[in-house]
Design a protein around this nucleic acid. Structure first.
Lengths: 363, 363
DNA sequence: CTGTTAGCGCTTTCAA
DNA sequence: TTGAAAGCGCTAACAG
């Protein structure tokens, strides 16, 4: 007993076999109220019996001009992005938003993964999506270029801040102020700054004010300038700024070492990243420097490890950023089908300063 | 000077304006070797000038019968999945595989998130993908049903183990043996077992052997039976098994408390999950019970927190599972377009036992 | 190297 | 409540 498969199953073939029109079958799936419950049942039953999997999504999308998915572009090689808690949290927020919008998420495996760098953005060109969310990429990132080329709604998160695109992020300048101010108010005057990746090209070492003004990674630069502003207002003008391009245990440790060696007079270190701050804590422990007794330290991000160590830090809402970006994109997509763009939306989310236990008055 | 936008840009309209055929334009994008470099340049330039974004992905997919994306279905509400390190690692592995295959990843926001439970799997039905990877769901999960209904290649990871579908996972029975054996070899005879979610419906408390045989969450059950087997062979037959449905700090703490209260004679606890084991460590510390001096503890999974605490545990390769599942699906998709299914593939990945520092002979 | 033709499978007016 | 007809935008044969 072999059931033969009558070619490929399509909505039309099903309709033909049942002696109804394609319209009716289509309605059975998409507009239950447009046909009698009886016919609908009959159609659905027949479909199940014959193994017709329902209307082909691609054909449906072509016809309706609607993909039901939004593209997500994460800076790094996608596989690395999952190792970074911040981007994972961001994705969680996106997921929340997309569930609410009955939309799927299309992750583009960007980064130096694919074959040639030239055809890498081709995945962007080929993705069947209704819009993109781009998370923290450089202003001239080729993937971002590819996304713009698609002519679909785009929302940028964190970076680039000035691309003229709808934006979700935080006010980095304002966000770091409470941390800087806490240090100042505790009485510190010898303060150093540790920052991550200020420039696109690898730059490690101390950065002069002139050089800093040219830093092209705006998020990190804003945090440094935000802090410097507070320090300057307090009359603290001699603030060494040290940067590292990479952000791992090794580099942060090296950075902390270099800063403390070059400036033994420091009584406080402000970091633009929790990982940097944790590096400082590690070096301090190794050298028997008491924190916060002899050295105050602040971070930025609010990663879990920071919370566990009681680090004084600025907590930013990664998951909320994802949700906000998702919702903003959804509304752009919804609107795009009607009214023109209007003013490009820009949403800044609030951050909070976590007092922690790593700040004390200088000795 | 206003450039007028001549309606919607399509490949055909571009071709018409340039006075070439649609084929030629198509080739300019897809088969550079099928036309002169000159014409290609002319076409691409014209496209850029007019803002033609390139061939529409949906139409292309319809025509080529190929979506260039694989669907990923994670058990929990997608947003929760990102809070679970194991599934994040799994996704990282998937990402790696998909980058290699020049494919995007379509995440389906499953779980109790969407509108009505009835139309929730509809996202599965509407996803434009070439196949699915399903990660650790119940055998009768409605999303899994929906996936099967699509008639596309599917790879299951972890669960269900016996769906007759291509499978990637570990041998849970064998995997836990080294942990159980280490306890036995250290000389323990009073051993308890802590397990997570043995049943689909919420079950909290002690589980009799009869009840255990009925447990429908096979992964967890296998770990318990694998351990029991080792214990029985060593003549240890009286082994209390306690389970909790939820897996968070609170429930694991409560479970540990309940087990130690009911069985103060225990000198060792084997857990089917690191989180459970960490719960035991927490309770032990609270009660001043020395680990491993007075109590030996083992876990399962190899999460980061376990490593940091020196937990003796079975480490499973979550990222490798993702990569393996991704590759298996890719090959099924590639093949599907030629040969018939053949034997359904099944891949078991190796696990390792991490000795750790939480096992010692009983006092 | 380029053009003509014929659909991929569906939804959507519009008419019956 | 159902049906007929017209494409959505593209690519793949096959000719030239």
């Amino acid at each position: 007993m072999v059931k033969r498969t009558p070619q490929r199953k399509t909505l039309a073939s099903l309709a033909a076999e049942l002696g109804v029109s394609p319209t009716t079958v289509s309605n059975a799936y998409n507009r239950p109220d447009q046909l009698s419950a009886a016919t609908r049942q009959r159609i659905l039953a027949a479909a199940a019996a014959r193994g017709y999997p329902g209307p082909d999504p691609t054909a449906r999308s072509l016809r309706t001009r609607h993909a039901g998915s939004v593209g997500v572009l994460l800076t790094e090689h996608l596989s690395y992005a999952f190792e970074d808690q911040a981007s994972v949290d961001f994705l969680a927020g996106m997921a929340e938003a997309s569930a609410g919008a009955d939309t799927t998420l299309t992750l583009i495996p960007a980064g130096p993964g694919s074959s040639s760098p030239a055809d890498a953005p081709s995945l962007v060109a080929r993705a069947a999506v209704d819009g993109f969310v781009v998370y923290s990429v450089a202003a001239d990132d080729p993937y971002l270029e590819a996304v713009r080329g698609r002519g679909l709604p785009v929302v940028v998160c964190d970076q680039p801040t000035d691309a003229g695109l709808p934006f979700v992020g935080i006010d980095d300048v304002a966000a770091i102020e409470p941390a800087a101010r806490a240090l100042v108010e505790a009485g510190h005057t010898k303060i150093g700054i540790l920052a991550i990746r200020l420039f696109r090209e690898p730059v490690d070492g101390f950065v002069s004010p002139e050089r800093l003004a040219e830093a092209d990674m705006h998020v990190q630069r804003s945090r440094v300038t935000g802090a410097l502003q507070v320090f300057h207002e307090a009359g603290i003008t001699d603030v060494p700024v040290l940067t590292r391009h990479l952000n791992n245990a090794q580099t942060t440790h090296a950075a902390a070492t270099e800063l403390l060696d070059a400036h033994p007079e420091l009584t406080a270190v402000l970091c633009t990243t929790d990982s940097m701050a944790l590096g400082v804590l590690t070096v301090a422990r190794e050298r028997g420097i008491d924190v916060p007794g002899e050295l105050s330290v602040t971070g930025f991000d609010g990663i879990q490890a920071a919370g566990l160590r009681g680090l004084s830090t600025v907590v930013q809402p990664n998951k909320a950023k994802g949700a906000a970006a998702g919702h903003m994109l959804a509304s752009l997509i919804a609107r795009g089908e009607a009214e023109p763009p209007e003013k490009t939306p820009r949403r800044l989310l609030p951050t909070t300063f976590e007092r922690g236990t790593t700040i004390a008055p200088p000795r």
